[in-house]
Simulated scan of single mutants.
Amino acid sequence: MKTVAQLLKLKDLKNQEVHTIAPHQMVLEALMIMAAKNVGALPVVAHGEVVGIISERDYARKLVLKGRSSVGTPVSDIMVKEVITVDTHQSVETCMGIMSNKRLRHLPVVENGKLLGLLSIGDLVKEAIAEQAELIKQLEQYIRGE
């Protein structure tokens, strides 16, 4: 299986950019960025370091269901503070295991303290399907003696 570094290079140019937000910004700003960029989560970055992650799920469960306002609530109030990250050397398979076991949909990629990318479960599933399709093709060619 490919490594995270290889997978990040394969992503479309528009999907390689990582959109972030600061912990002091309001949840409404995070929602506006997520909607504009068509993403489901944003790493929360302070002083160049990932300090959290906020997702649409956090908004729904920690704000809407509790009757709080997205206008006056800072991201730091509802973000997940214990962020699980991976480095570029991890395999796609390892990342899928982490995401499945921890029930995550987004996984920040950090190398030497610097945020390099954000993987979604969709990115990983797409790659796994592509690799399986290639393996099937190779096995069919082997069976046919090609």
Rank of each mutant, 00 (worst) to 15 (best):
A30K: 05
D77G: 02
C95Y: 07
K62L: 08
V4M: 06
Q6I: 07
T88P: 05
R68F: 09
G48Y: 08
S69T: 09
D12P: 15
M26R: 11
K81L: 03
E146R: 12
M79W: 00
E140A: 12
A133G: 05
E127L: 08
K126G: 04
Q132R: 15
K62E: 10
E127D: 13
V83I: 06
L124M: 07
D123A: 07
M99G: 08
S76Y: 07
Q141E: 15
L28V: 07
L119W: 06
K137E: 13
C95Q: 07
V44S: 03
L31H: 00
E29P: 03
E140H: 10
I54L: 09
I84L: 11
V18W: 04
V44P: 00
D58H: 03
D87C: 10
G72H: 04
S55H: 01
V4Y: 02
E49F: 07
V75C: 01
P108Y: 03
E127W: 02
I33G: 00
N112G: 09
K14S: 14
H24N: 09
E29T: 11
K114Q: 15
V125F: 11
E111H: 11
L107G: 03
Q141T: 08
V75Q: 00
D123G: 05
A35V: 10
T88F: 03
E127V: 11
L116T: 06
L63M: 10
E131R: 11
E56M: 02
V80H: 01
M99N: 08
I129A: 12
E131Y: 10
S55L: 01
L63P: 02
L119A: 06
V44F: 01
L107S: 03
P74E: 06
P74C: 04
V18G: 06
T20F: 04
M34K: 01
K37L: 05
V50D: 04
D58V: 00
P74L: 01
H106C: 04
V125Y: 09
D77C: 02
M32Q: 15
I98V: 13
A36N: 11
R103K: 15
G113T: 10
G72R: 04
G122E: 09
Q141M: 14
V50I: 08
H24D: 13
V50Q: 05
V71M: 09
G40E: 04
A30E: 00
E140K: 14
L118Q: 00
T88A: 12
T73V: 07
N112E: 15
K126N: 12
L116S: 09
A60T: 12
D12L: 08
P108C: 03
L31C: 14
M26A: 11
V83E: 01
M99T: 08
V71W: 06
L124N: 05
A22R: 08
G117V: 01
S69D: 13
V64Y: 09
M1K: 10
D12E: 14
D123T: 05
H24M: 03
L31S: 00
E49Y: 07
T85Q: 11
T3L: 10
R57F: 03
E134A: 15
E140L: 09
A130D: 13
V125A: 13
S91T: 15
L31M: 14
D87M: 05
Q16H: 07
L13Y: 06
V45I: 10
T3C: 13
V39E: 00
R57Q: 07
M32H: 11
R103S: 14
